Simulated assay, not measured.
Amino acid sequence: MIVASIPSNAASVARHYDELDPAYRRIWGEHVHHGYWREGHESPEEASVALVELVEQRLALKPGQRVCDIGCGYGATAAELLKRHDVAIVGFTLSARQQRIGQARAPGFACLRRDWLDNGLATASFERAYAIESSEHMVDKALFFAEARRILRDDGRLVVCAWLEGEHVRPWAVRHLLEPICREGRLPSMGSREDYVRLARDAGFVLTHYQDISRQVQRTWTICLVRLVKALIRDPAIRRLAFGRGVESRDFLFSLPRLILAFRTGAMRYGVFQWDAVSPPASNAATDR
């Protein structure tokens, strides 16, 4: 587990997304996650939706189910799912700006501004849950999984897309790539595939599918870097974010080359996990609400 040298918490994550809201939306779009190039010729927008479709396939949604979006961003993923499925989705974000957009996103979607680690949901009240690139922001990853297991029914399913530490990462890559990525991206820690499997198992999940799609998503950051450079030239709002002294989160804008190199060297991986809740929640999980 890679741990950031400067601690991060829910407040700093919220500030990160609120401050960088214009950059996220103008440079990449309202899907605050990687694109997934299945064929290789998709546009960035099509690739963003393709990742949602991959998660959708793993969720295997059924009519009438209650679904939890852990780290819903602007609610764009939930809106895509609601186009094709008769389900109800409750999403969680820490960002006030994301919630304002998410609240008006689609019928059947409730966007809450609340910390997942203190979510207030009833036990066994959902059939499905997913987290697309949000588990990285959790201060306590064991509690992240424990809460997901607690709110799911015994036949429930959890799908997680995660930034992961690669295998056999060299010390220089930790020092110059992964730890700075955690620090600049407000990630308290970055786990490996093995870390996630162990934490989920301890919470009462059984891994039923895993897919490494690092090669299919890494193009995201090259596109973002090119768009950022153009935006710095053309867009005064982005220049203010990048060079304004009062913007605490601006360091992440300059972390894009690290992300490109981390993927290309294998220091960082991107995994899609599917877990089924087929055993009782772990005894040390959060108490019923």
Rank of each mutant, 00 (worst) to 15 (best):
D115F: 07
A88Y: 14
R153M: 12
F145Y: 15
A96Y: 14
G185C: 08
P63L: 00
A129V: 04
N119M: 00
P107T: 01
E147P: 05
R97P: 07
R157V: 15
P188W: 13
W163E: 14
R149M: 01
K141H: 01
F109L: 00
V159M: 02
E147D: 06
S48H: 10
S135W: 11
C72S: 12
D115N: 15
P171E: 04
R97I: 08
G64T: 04
A148D: 09
R58M: 09
L152G: 06
C182E: 04
S95W: 11
A124H: 06
H176K: 08
R100V: 07
R149C: 05
A148C: 04
L177N: 11
I151W: 05
G108K: 01
D69K: 06
A162M: 10
A146Q: 09
E46N: 00
L187M: 14
P188M: 07
G156Y: 11
G185R: 08
A47D: 02
S134A: 15
R175D: 12
A148V: 00
Y130V: 00
G91H: 05
C111P: 03
R149D: 02
F126G: 03
G73Y: 12
V139L: 12
G91E: 03
V87K: 03
S125D: 03
K83H: 08
Q98C: 03
L54G: 05
C72K: 05
R66E: 09
E53R: 12
V174N: 11
R170Q: 14
E133V: 12
H85T: 06
I132H: 06
I151S: 02
R186E: 13
G71W: 04
H85A: 10
R113D: 11
V174D: 14
A148K: 06
A124V: 05
G108A: 08
R175E: 13
Q65R: 08
A142P: 00
F144N: 05
E136S: 13
V169Q: 00
V55M: 12
C161N: 14
D86M: 08
G102D: 01
S189Y: 07
L164H: 07
R128E: 09
E184R: 15
Q57M: 14
